[in-house]
Nucleic acid binder design. Structure first.
Lengths: 222, 222
DNA sequence: GAGCACGTGTTTGTATGCAGAGTGGCTTCA
DNA sequence: TGAAGCCACTCTGCATACAAACACGTGCTC
């Protein structure tokens, strides 16, 4: 069964992850509830879940805001991602079945043709996420997987901007991670994953810092 | 400013973390709202946050339930804890200032006398958490710290039961972790933290498995 | 001209009411 | 006697209403 709360949750979550709110923008509950075709009660319940997940911020007496991504937060989220994903890859090496590995291999060769210039950044990011979530699922730990997914949603919009010209490099990195897991080489797999995330991290930081200095400085609350 | 939602959130969070709901028990909103002196609307908003944090479970059409801790979930949460805390300790080695380290040292010697037989398990668990959160705060990453705290809350009740006779061992392990951080030895610090968590993990699993086989099997929903 | 006070319109915070789904017990029938 | 269906009661899901807090613009004062 899908309730009004679930529906609102999914929609607002998508809106937040797809950056349809301006950073640090106050979200008008009445207007949004009208747009979603529900009343404020279920909408607020949904938004409270998103606060706990870090996609929105709540300020008593003022309402809900889009969480703005400053460089510090981005560093923290990438560190979190590294913590979670290196552990996931460690567990994946231990637990992945041959069948699961074959599935990954098929997936990688299926999507290889998409990794060419001209593919939109959003699609590349989405493919990248898909690969990482597949690896995460090999770890056999739904809690870990869930946190990884959440962290992705919080950095996704930066990656849309950052993911340029890096297309073939990403694909090569994924291949490397996969090979290491297949070889059951824990250290190599962890190193490959860490290196891959750090590269992505640096690009993202670059992007945000450029955005901060050149374009637009979101207003900080608190 | 502290709203009704915040108040309800804090109280229900405490109740959940302190195991005042039976595992997998349905929570009666009307009754609980009366008990907390608020109406159902803010209570439901608070409970939705706790769902996102994993302390409660929501089932459409039936309401909110206390999340029950089965052995699988416990394994997953301990793996998560290991992922988060080994990374935290890595960052702590890099970033901790001398002043912060002195603070930890003072803390450790201040609480040393409490680590004796006869101290209630709940207090020992609380001291243990406090130490780990202090280490986590040295990492200088609020997102990481927040996830560590959340993970603690979800396993706390098992630790109350599991934490017996292990009192001096815990204290020794903490000393070891601290020494390694102070010596800026990343590998030693990570190993010490990992070993410490795994010991705790095994005890917790033991406890839950015993509880499952002997005492009480919470009803699984789903 | 700058800053403060006031008032109005807007938005949030929470209580409440009602419809409908869920639950459990009772009856009835095989 | 056991199981299935029905009925009544309870509880959730959501909309709405109202009060209180906030934001902003205007006018007054220094």
């Amino acid at each position: 069964m899908s309730t009004s709360v679930d529906l609102a949750y999914e929609q607002v979550r998508k809106m937040a992850a797809n950056f349809e709110f301006k950073p640090a923008e106050r979200i008008n509950e009445t207007e949004l509830s009208k747009r979603l075709g529900a009343s404020r009660t279920p909408l607020r319940e949904a938004m409270n879940r998103l606060v706990a997940e870090g996609l929105l911020v709540f300020e008593g007496g003022r309402g809900f805001f889009c969480q703005s991504l400053n460089p510090d937060l981005l560093v923290h989220l990438y560190e979190l991602r590294e913590a979670l994903e290196t552990s996931a890859v460690r567990l994946a090496v231990e637990r992945a079945t041959g069948e699961q590995l074959q599935d990954i291999e098929r997936y990688l060769s299926n999507i290889a043709p998409r990794y060419i210039d001209g593919t939109p950044a959003r699609e590349i990011v989405s493919l990248d996420e898909e690969f990482h979530l597949k690896i995460a699922s090999l770890a056999g730990n739904p809690e870990l997987q869930n946190m990884i997914e959440l962290t992705y949603e919080r950095i996704r919009y930066v990656r849309w901007i950052a993911m340029r010209d890096k297309i073939d490099i990403t694909h090569a990195a994924h291949q490397g991670i996969y090979e290491a897991i297949k070889a059951r080489d824990v250290d190599a797999a962890i190193d490959a994953m860490r290196e891959h995330i750090r590269t992505s991290h640096e690009e993202a930081i670059d992007t945000v810092e450029k955005a901060y200095s050149q374009l637009y400085v979101p207003r900080q609350q608190n």
